[in-house]
């Protein structure tokens, strides 16, 4: 099982390393959105209230771009059929795709988060652990539902347009939870990071298991 997941993950990363389809454009996109926010939200003292929301908006938008591409290659050359026929557990295909999406998102965040801190002139927060936990749990929640929906949308007309329409409302608890937990990590008054981390854990558990189970049905028609 774990080896199957690893196989899918390695396949995606080899394809990415060879084509460099995503990394470059995502990096530019993140830079651009950071500068756009920098220009449109002038640095003020009360910016700490908006800062977590800005960071997560950037992550969600960049993540959306990454997700919508994650199955594009498979759909283009009819690789979904190959994956469905491969002697792999179908759950492993889901977990492998999820792992490769997660890796992408983490790589994006490694650039984006320090960049946002630098651009908005924020000193690093006191609660490092909380910030990392908020980022990790928020990213996992976003990616697990996102991987399921991205697989679906790859096969539809207007799929890249429909993905955010379905994904953003589903991710509402992640958006609120991740933003509030990040605010707590940054020491915003009234934000209780612990509370929200628990909500994120619950969401992540539900929406790791449910897509894992449903992906089996999806593979039959992709």
């Amino acid at each position: 099982m774990l080896r199957d997941v690893w196989t899918i993950l390695r396949k995606d990363w080899q394809a990415e390393l060879r084509t460099q389809e995503m990394a470059g454009s995502l990096l530019v996109f993140i830079l651009l959105i950071a500068f756009l926010f920098g220009l449109t939200f002038p640095a003020r003292r009360d910016l700490v209230y908006f800062f977590p929301g800005l960071v997560w908006t950037a992550i969600f938008f960049a993540g959306m771009l990454g997700l919508s591409r994650s199955f594009a290659g498979e759909a283009r050359s009819d690789c979904m059929k190959g994956l469905a026929l491969a002697p792999l557990d179908r759950g492993a295909v889901f977990l492998g795709k999820l792992a490769s999406n997660l890796l992408f998102l983490v790589a994006t965040e490694l650039v984006a988060v320090p960049l946002f801190f630098a651009l908005f002139d924020f000193s690093p927060p006191g609660h490092w652990g909380t910030l990392v936990a908020a980022l990790a749990l928020g990213t996992l929640g976003f990616a697990s539902v996102g991987t399921l929906l991205a697989a679906m949308m790859a096969g539809t007309k207007r799929g890249e347009f429909l993905l955010p329409l379905a994904l953003f409302p589903l991710e509402m608890p992640v958006a609120v939870g991740a933003v509030e937990a990040t605010a707590g990590a940054l020491g915003v008054a009234g934000a209780h990071a612990g509370h929200w981390l628990k909500l994120l854990v619950a969401y992540d558990l539900i929406f790791l298991v449910v897509p894992y189970l449903l992906f089996d049905y999806l593979m039959e028609v992709l």
Binding site: K157, P173, L199, Y203, I206, F207, V210, V221
Partner: peptide, 29 residues
């Protein structure tokens, strides 16, 4: 936006289930 009836049915069912399960978490959040 899905034309094949079987594909559409599976997509819809998956979405219908995920959306419904999302509601209690949304309410809590």
């Amino acid at each position: 936006s899905v034309t094949s009836p079987d594909t559409r049915a599976v997509y819809s069912a998956v979405l219908g289930i995920v959306a419904f399960l999302d509601v209690p978490v949304v309410f809590l959040a």
